[in-house]
């Protein structure tokens, strides 16, 4: 009986070691909530001040994205430092490379669309490529972000199909979904 337990324990040890040495587990749930709220505020501001020109919308969206990424990175790094530097370096590097490849391609595509003044498709492109980035990088991080990725892609497809509601999809994808998933990650892994 005790031997059986020992074997079971050994299997579990193997599993945890494999996961801990490959997965970047420091995604911050708090960052998700903060970023989501930021997106909602930006959306409200766009509606309030009635921003409609192509250039200003583009600047606001790109600016929001930059701030959001910085918040996410900053809070995740802060969380990771507590867990040990060497594990963080290796797993984070792998995660970030996988995460930024689709995001970078999506960013360039958005820029091309903006230059051709096809602004209507930009929310869709942002959502879809962000979703792909999450799904792709989830192999090297928390499984939860894969589901978030799928939902972002769905929101993006809706944004592309109904371009007149593109901004609404954008605020659901980057705002509401981030708040929900930030909360899920926070309660699941940080409590």
């Amino acid at each position: 009986m005790s031997q059986e337990k020992e074997h079971l324990q050994a299997i579990q040890d193997i599993k945890t070691m494999m996961e801990r040495s490959t997965k970047f587990s420091s995604i911050s749930g708090k960052a998700g909530i903060v970023v989501g709220m930021l997106a909602v505020i930006v959306f409200a501001a766009i509606k309030w001040f009635d921003v409609t020109t192509v250039a200003s919308l583009f600047v606001v969206m790109v600016g929001t994205l930059m701030i959001a990424l910085s918040i996410g990175l900053y809070l995740s790094i802060a969380k990771a430092k507590k867990e040990g530097a060497a594990i963080f370096d290796t797993t984070a590097k792998r995660f970030l490379v996988q995460f930024f490849i689709p995001l970078f391609v999506g960013g360039i595509l958005c820029l091309i669309f903006a230059c051709q003044t096809q602004i209507g498709y930009i929310p869709a492109m942002m959502l879809i490529f962000y979703g792909f980035a999450l799904v792709h990088a989830s192999k090297f991080s928390l499984d939860t972000i894969k589901n978030l990725g799928y939902l972002e892609i769905v929101a993006g497809l809706f944004a592309a199909a109904f371009t007149q509601y593109g901004m609404w999809c954008w605020v659901i994808g980057f705002g509401v979904l981030h708040i929900i998933y930030g909360f899920i990650i926070y309660t699941k892994y940080e409590k």
């Binding site: 050994a10 040890d13 193997i14 490959t22």
Partner: peptide
């Protein structure tokens, strides 16, 4: 258990250095 741990880590990572092993 230590050897089990070392091998588990090396199974899923191509190259692992000393510090990373130590921290894990």
């Amino acid at each position: 258990r230590i050897r089990l741990g070392i091998m588990s880590i090396l199974m899923v990572n191509d190259q692992v250095d000393f510090t990373m092993l130590k921290e894990l």
